[in-house]
């Protein structure tokens, strides 16, 4: 299988980037997209050229490290997957594949396809935790949680923070990420004590980081590898209104 990669190359955060095309032969259908990029990098090393920088860690769709914009979609042409779970069989022989880094003011490009996603960590620092001292691991059934509540919290907690929601949103809004983190904590009994403070401070930090507002285009939930529902954002809005009311 032979494809042409058209990849964004950028030396560092300050330099101007640009696209560069690479014709790559010797690929197979069952190669993952990242393996295809590895293959290209091996060729570049052989030619004594600079390799392409991209992020990955687990390569099994659970860490949220990998993530690039492929042919006009976050994480490539399929819905609800990570970049590492994308395979070359999703492309055709001879196709040109455009690979770009996540685009958002809050996600500056560090090098090539790598962006700085610290803005998401800064949101987490404002309340994406429980401040009670827990000591050693507590007895699992000390606090009873109903199945429906546990399921709902788990659906939101599934967020791996890859940033596809921000990347695919026309407003570069981090509302889906922030909402998932807030709803995960706030729906569990352990999170209730700090629920109001959490929603207000995390949503405030989201704005301070320079993310845009949510206009419910729904692009994020289609690109989210965990399929986190956009209704989470509406729920965050409701929780935020309740917290505001409570603080009056």
């Amino acid at each position: 299988m032979k494809v042409t990669f058209k990849i964004w190359r950028q030396e560092n955060a300050k330099s101007n980037g640009g696209f560069q095309s690479y014709e790559v032969d010797g690929l197979t259908d069952d190669m993952s997209f990242l393996e295809a990029l590895d293959h290209l990098n091996e060729i570049l090393v052989g030619q004594n050229q600079k390799t392409i920088a991209y992020e990955y860690d687990c390569r099994e769709g659970i860490c949220g490290q990998c993530g690039v914009f492929i042919n006009g979609r976050a994480h490539g042409p399929l819905d609800n997957i990570t970049t590492c779970q994308l395979h070359m069989r999703s492309f055709t022989d001879g196709q040109t594949i455009v690979v770009e880094p996540w685009r958002a003011k809050a996600f500056p490009v560090i090098k090539d396809l790598v962006v700085d996603r610290s803005a998401l960590d800064n949101i987490m620092e404002q309340g994406g935790y429980i401040s009670a001292k827990t000591g050693t691991a507590p007895e699992a059934n000390a606090i009873l949680v109903g199945k429906d509540v546990a399921d709902k919290a788990m659906d939101a907690a599934a967020c791996i923070g890859c940033g596809a929601c921000v990347a695919s949103c026309k407003n570069a809004s981090a509302a889906l990420f922030t909402a998932a983190k807030i709803n995960h904590m706030n729906s569990l009994p352990q999170g209730k004590q700090e629920a109001h403070r959490r929603v207000l401070e995390m949503s405030r930090q989201m704005e301070l980081e320079g993310f845009g507002s949510c206009t419910f285009t729904g692009a994020c939930e289609v690109e989210c590898p965990e399929g986190i529902s956009i209704t989470n954002i509406a729920e965050m809005n409701a929780r935020r209104a309740m917290a505001k009311w409570h603080n009056l």
């Binding site: 685009r103 949103c169 026309k170 407003n171 809004s173 320079g210």
Partner: peptide, 13 residues
């Protein structure tokens, strides 16, 4: 919102 996304994608489906 436009300021939040200063650079557009070359290809965006």
């Amino acid at each position: 919102n436009r300021r939040a996304k200063p650079k557009k994608y070359l290809e965006n489906k």
